[in-house]
Each structure stands twice: as C-alpha cells, then as structure tokens.
Amino acid sequence: MAVLLLAEVNNGELAMDATAKAVTAAKALGDVTVLAAGASAAAAGDAAAKIDGVAKVLVAEDASLGHRLAESTATLIVSLAGDYEHIVAPATTDAKNVMPRVAALLDAMVISDVSGVVDGSTFERPIYAGNAIQTVKSSDAKKVVTFRTSTFDAAGEGGAAPVESVPAAADPGLSSWVEDKVAASDRPELTSAGIVVSGGRGVGSEEDFKLIESLADKLGAAVGASRAAVDSGYAPNDWQVGQTGKVVAPDLYVAVGISGAIQHLAGMKDSKIIVAINKDEEAPIFQVADYGLVADLFTAVPELIEKL
C-alpha cells in the first residue's frame, strides 16, 4: 500500500528530524512517497530523497504554497490523494493546521498525534493529556494521520529516491501571509534536542529566565518553559512544553521552578531522565523525576552551572 507523507518544509528547507521520524512511522504502512511543498521546495525535496526508506519524492513549488497556508496546501494534497491509502505527516503545528482539512475534504476522520502503529488501520494515540492511550481502528478508505515525533526514532540517511515535480493545485486565494516572528537561536531545536532545560513560574521574571538559558547553554541544551512562564511573558510561546505546546522526549529533561501539572507532564514525561529542581518538596513534578533536588533555584542553578 502507498503512503503520501507531507514533509516539514520551513522557508524552503527540510526539517530533517521531524520528517525522518515520520518516515520511520510511515514505513510500517507501505511505500513512502514524500511530498515537499512550498514557494521553494526543490532543495527540501532533494534532502528528503536521502532519507532511508523513502521510495519517491514529489516536489510542488508555487508561490501559493509558501508559508504552508492551509487552504492551498490541503488542495494540493487532495489533488494527489488518489494514489495513496495513507496520507501522513509529522504532528507539527503546520501539519495540525493542514491535515484535518485534508481529511474533511476526503470525508475521513483525521487520526492526530499517533504514538504507535498497530496495523494499516489501527493506531495508538494519547488522549486526556496522556492520561490514557487509546487504540483506534479506522474504517475510512483513506487514513489521514499525524505522527507524534517524540515517540519515533529518525530514519537514517543514505537513500537516493527519485524526485519528480508536480504542479500546485489552483490557489483558492482565501488567505495570505503577512509576517513571521521567529527568534533566531543557535541552540538546538526543542523537539529534537538531546537535553532540554525548562523553566516555570518559579523563575519569576523574564530577566531571571536568563538563568535557565545559561544552564541550557552550559549543557548544550534547548530551552523549554511551562505555560505559566510563557503566559507571564518570561519565555516565548514556541518554548511551551505540554499538552497544548510541544512534546519532547530528550535523554535529559531538567524542570526548574515547575510544579508538574498534568498538562505540563503530558509534554515531557517520556523523557529518559527527568531532573526537577523545586523548593516545594510536595511539588508533583517530583513524582515523575528520576532525581529531585528540593532547593531554591536561585542558589541551586548557579551552583549547578558552576559544577557541571
């Protein structure tokens, strides 16, 4: 059976980690054709062709596909859907924007944030902020699926799949891009980093959040945050980890001044080692931490930076 996988393409560049993880999940379903779409997507398509297990790459380049606007991207995918039983993507915000739209146009129920593939129509996915794992079996002719990347290993590189170009579908002209506010950073990307250091409301201010960033830099880590820290303006929205933010599963997750609400745990409890620093020994975060340190973060974190 054939699978069409929407590659994660940002400004013409392939997001290798997210795409390669989705390829791993998709390979279990059949031959994987990757679709690279964007205002410029050729380079992304070439990069995707190297992912092990990719049988073919389709490149769709058109101004209307820039910035991954949902309406034009969904129209393109639907125009290609005929040949495929599965239409899949990594569960990024871009894909969460586009894939339910694709599913509805195909009269299928989208299966979001899949964490396990049982067979071609049966999938596992977390519900209730990860408090339950549901196994669902789809009766739809076409299955539209997004994969939670934190639970799949990235496919390797070394392939050389053929690359073909495909035309964009007619632009419905319903929306247009205005601007992006993206902070450039030399730090590793949050969802693929080996180490993540996150700060919560306990950090207290945007100024003091620099302490969290210093610890992250010392460890070569990405920086994360709780919702409370983002809401309070200590950290940007794209650092939020949790049920409604990013889901991460690094080798080491350090939670500083975070209480451990279920909505936060939903985004990090699959990390290999969890460290919690919190001055409240009753904080629920300690129930999931491998190593807990009951301490004031303003003394513990500087000491940690010094001793690492």
Partner: peptide, 14 residues
C-alpha cells in the same frame, strides 16, 4: 496571529 512551532505567524484571511 498564530502560535506556531517556530514562533508567531501572522496571516490575513478572507
């Protein structure tokens, strides 16, 4: 303005 993985994106919709 939309909260996306990379930060914030602003679009104009009909």
């Amino acid at each position: 303005t939309r909260e996306v993985d990379g930060g914030l994106q602003t679009i104009s919709v009909k």
